[in-house]
Every structure is written in structure tokens, then in C-alpha cells.
Amino acid sequence: MPEFKRPHALTDAYLHYCPGCTHGIVHRLVAEVIDEMGIEGDTVGVCPVGCSVMAYDYFNCDMMEASHGRAPAVATGVKRANPDKFVFTYQGDGDLAAIGTAETVHAATRGENITVIFINNTTYGMTGGQMAPTTLPGQITQTTPYGRNTDIEGFPVKMCEMLSQLDGVALAQRVTVIDPANIRKAKAAIRKGFEYQKNKQGFSIIEVLSTCPTNWGLTPVQAIERLKNDMIPYYPLGVYKDGAVRNKEAAAQ
């Protein structure tokens, strides 16, 4: 039986996230993968602007803080200069799918050998719950007080579906962390992303459907129910693309 303890790749710092927020679980999964692969000393993480802006204090590997939306470009800079290091970004939906859409799409289509952890909680958490690109139709937020009206605010962005069309993408998978079975799947997906990176096989994005009880105005348990009932039907879990873009023989091993 393995002992349950804090992964080495996480620092001792207290996480500042709200009660019931799933950031902590996802941080832990990334850290466990780094520990298991023994790559902490060769990993550089890139943080976004958003609730996880201070993730640089939580991960024990070298970290960089990017400006809003630019994490994939920053990660590209690190990776191109240091092709043998592991580089991951950790981004929310506003960062990755609104202000940083161009950087996301182009890092993906270049097949940049980086791993992107994408937290989709359908809201701008840090600024107090405004409409995100992933906000569901009808969802009430601070800037859609009457509910997201698709005639006015348009439709949510489905990043995994979109990115799966690009030749540079090795892995596009949507997971969630609302129960142990899904947490295990999420971890396996993150691990796969890092493995593709290890073998220089292309871009990987793991989209994690997450909760934001504070801005949703729900208890943590209610938030999980909302995720199951409202989010998963709109953002189905699953693998949207899986397969090495390059170095395919390494994948077979």
C-alpha cells in the first residue's frame, strides 16, 4: 500500500484556493506525475493570470509567471531554448480560450512539445465571476446578469473539439476531478501528456472540467452536481485526439 503524502513537486505553501475549488486536486495530480516520472529537476512550469496566478509558489520545479493568455508563447520560448526540459502551462478558461486563444492555437498547430493543463470552470474566478468564453448558455455571471444570451454574447468555446482538428496536437482530452474514478483518469491523461512531451511527439492539452463554488454561488457539493448535470452534457468527457504527431515509433514502445 503506498503511503499517502504530499508530492515532493508541491511546496509546503498553503494553497489560497477557495473551499471546494478543484485547483488543489489538479495541482496535486500534476505534481504526482512529475514525482513519478522523476523530472522535477528538469521541469519548468508556466503560470497564467487567473486564480492559479500564484501556482509558482506551489510547485517545487522552476516556474515562470506569464502575462494574461501568453503562457503557451512563454512555454514555447523555454522549450525551444531547452528542448530537453519538460515544460507545462497551467491555465484557466479566460486565459487560454479568450485573451490567449491565438497563443494556444498556434502552439498547438506547431506541435510544440509542451503540456497544457486547462482548467475550465466556465467563469473568470479571480476577478469575481464574469462571463468566460466557456460560460454556458443561460449561465448567470457578473457580466451576464440575465444569463448568457447566445444572440448577444455568442456561444461557448469547445477547446478540445477545436484543437483536435489541428495536425500538431498529439493529445486533446477532457477530464474532470469530481470523484476518484475521474481523478484517476485525469491523472492518466496528464501522465500521457508528459510522456508525449518526453518523446517529443507533439502538443498535449488536458482540459479539466472544474468547479468554482464561490462564483457559482453554490456549496462544493452542489457545484459538483452542477458540473455533472450542466457542464458534462455541453462539454462531453473523453479523448478528442490521441496519437503522436512525430517520433511515432517512440509511442509504440
Binding site: A73, V74, G77, R80, A81
Partner: peptide, 11 residues
């Protein structure tokens, strides 16, 4: 921003 990342890695 690529410059930021690259410069941040000391190159």
C-alpha cells in the same frame, strides 16, 4: 512572450 520564456531560462 517567447523572448520572455527564453530569456527567463537564461538564454
Amino acid at each position: 512572450n517567447m523572448v520572455y520564456g527564453c530569456a527567463g531560462s537564461g538564454i
